[in-house]
Computed example of a mutant assay.
Amino acid sequence: MSVLVAEGLQTWYGKSHILHGVSVAVNDGEIVALLGRNGAGKTTTLRSLVGLTRPREGRVTIGGRDTTSWPPYMIAALGVGYVPEGRRVFANLSVEENLLVPNGRTGPWTLDRVYGLFPRLRERRRSRGRQLSGGEQEMLAIARALLLNPHILLLDEPSQGLAPLIVREVFAIVSGMRREGMSVLLVEQNVRAAVEIADVACVLDDGRVAFSGSARDFAGDDERVRKLAGASSADWGKGGSSEN
Rank of each mutant, 00 (worst) to 15 (best):
A198H: 03
A163E: 07
V167N: 00
S159Q: 14
A33W: 01
S2W: 00
A231Y: 03
P150Y: 09
G213V: 05
P55D: 11
V209N: 00
F171S: 13
L155T: 02
G81R: 05
S232W: 06
L153M: 13
G129Q: 09
D217A: 10
R105V: 00
L155D: 12
N244D: 06
W12K: 07
F90Y: 11
L228Y: 00
K238D: 12
V60D: 11
K15L: 11
L132N: 07
R37E: 07
T11F: 07
S241H: 08
N38W: 04
V22G: 12
V209C: 12
V170H: 08
F171K: 15
A172E: 14
G64E: 06
A143R: 01
E136K: 00
V195P: 02
L52H: 04
P158H: 13
R226K: 14
D199P: 04
R122K: 07
V5I: 08
F218Y: 13
S127T: 02
M177A: 07
A6M: 02
G104W: 01
S183I: 14
I31L: 13
G81S: 11
L111C: 09
F171Q: 12
P158K: 10
L19Y: 06
W109N: 09
A210L: 14
V170N: 07
P119F: 11
G51Y: 12
G129D: 08
P102C: 14
D221Q: 02
A143K: 14
L204W: 11
L4R: 12
E85P: 03
E136F: 03
Y82W: 15
A145Q: 01
L35K: 06
Q189N: 13
W236L: 15
F211N: 05
S241K: 06
G63F: 09
A194L: 05
G63D: 12
E223L: 05
T61M: 10
V89S: 08
I62R: 15
V24E: 05
V114P: 05
N27Q: 15
I18K: 08
R88G: 03
V32M: 09
L100R: 15
G29R: 14
G220K: 02
V225R: 02
L78Y: 14
T61K: 01
K227I: 01
A215L: 12
V187G: 03
T106E: 10
L46A: 13
S159P: 08
Y73N: 09
E57C: 02
F118P: 00
R65Y: 10
L9C: 11
L100M: 10
R208T: 08
G41Y: 05
R54T: 06
G107Y: 05
R144Q: 08
T68G: 11
E188V: 01
I197K: 08
N103K: 15
D235V: 03
T53L: 15
L78V: 06
L155Q: 15
R105S: 10
V167I: 09
N103A: 13
H20D: 12
L155H: 07
F211R: 00
M182D: 07
V50T: 10
S183A: 15
L117M: 12
L147A: 11
L162P: 04
R168H: 12
T110M: 13
R65A: 14
P158R: 13
L147I: 01
R224P: 01
V22M: 05
A210C: 10
Y73H: 15
C202E: 01
L99D: 09
L146Q: 07
